[in-house]
């Protein structure tokens, strides 16, 4: 997708880009909550004598939770606005123009004249609205790019370095717990050791899933940062030659509609 963004930018591409955060919307709150949950899981691997102390330290991770969720929500809201600005879902003129056909039919114009006239009107409106949306997106992207780069970079570090470190600690605690059991029971209870190894494998697989999710989230932040920069870098072209190029299909449709009008009324 971002290869496409590197070239000519049109609004549907902006919309597709803005939709990339949809999956993050559902997953990030759980991921932020898991920073502290990872610590609590780690406490379960602690010797009984230190468990309470570990849990107290886990409480320190709760302080930033609301702030991180708020920062993420701001990014989601921004992407939602970008998506809405680039889509035509908020427009209501279509129905109004459709009603024109009936009115025109009653006015004595023949079918081809009605079709040509309403077709031209729609194309004119589409082209004008497209131009307005492009201008607004251009302004938005121009104003926010530095902040979007900062925010996505920080959220990526929260997940790779912050959450990543908690997951590494969880893994270390898990390894210590199971290795200690194996060392202590290897000779006395070989069957117990087999069961311990099985649990270790299961726990490790669950942890790996979380590590993979963190890596995927970091990649999403990279993609958003890169994609937004592409939009930013190409923003000024939208109002000049590229805008005409982007609108070329609209312009082509407009030309055909004009021809249709000419033929209908000549």
């Amino acid at each position: 997708m971002f290869l496409v963004l590197a070239g000519c930018v049109d609004l549907s591409e902006v919309g597709k880009f803005a939709t990339t955060l949809e999956s993050a919307k559902a997953s990030f709150p759980a991921l932020v909550a898991d920073i502290q949950n990872s610590c609590i899981r780690r406490a379960n691997f602690a010797p009984e004598r230190t468990r309470e102390d570990v849990l107290q330290h886990c409480g320190n991770l709760a302080t930033s939770k609301d702030g991180l969720l708020q920062a993420q929500q701001v990014l989601l809201n921004y992407m939602e606005a970008l998506k809405n600005l680039s889509s035509d879902s908020s427009l209501t003129y279509g129905e109004k123009l459709d009603r024109l056909s009936d009115t025109l039919s009653k006015s004595g114009l023949d079918d081809s004249q009605v079709k040509a006239t309403t077709g031209l009107a729609k194309k004119l409106v589409d082209a004008a609205i497209n131009g307005y949306r492009k201008k607004e997106i251009e302004k938005l992207v121009g104003q926010t790019n530095d902040d979007i780069q900062t925010l996505t970079g920080a959220l990526k570090k929260v997940v790779t370095d912050g959450y990543g470190n908690e997951l590494k600690l969880e893994e270390e605690a898990m390894n210590t717990f199971y290795e200690t059991n194996i060392h202590e029971y290897a000779e006395k209870e070989p069957l117990t050791v087999t069961l311990v190894k099985r649990n270790w494998t299961t726990d490790f697989a669950a942890l790996q899933t979380k590590k993979d999710a963190a890596a995927a989230y970091a990649k999403t932040m990279d993609s958003i940062a890169d994609g937004h920069k592409q939009l930013y870098d190409s923003r000024n072209k939208w109002s000049t030659a590229s805008l005409v190029k982007d609108l070329s299909s609209d312009i082509s449709d407009l030309y055909q509609s004009t021809e249709q009008v000419y033929k209908a009324f000549k």
Binding site: I35, A46, H57, N60, D161, G162, L169
Partner: peptide
Amino acid sequence: QWTLMNYSSDFTAQALNFVV
């Protein structure tokens, strides 16, 4: 080892607070 892990986690908590 557990004390060192707790310190590590505390520094993560501090980092996250600074980020916010």
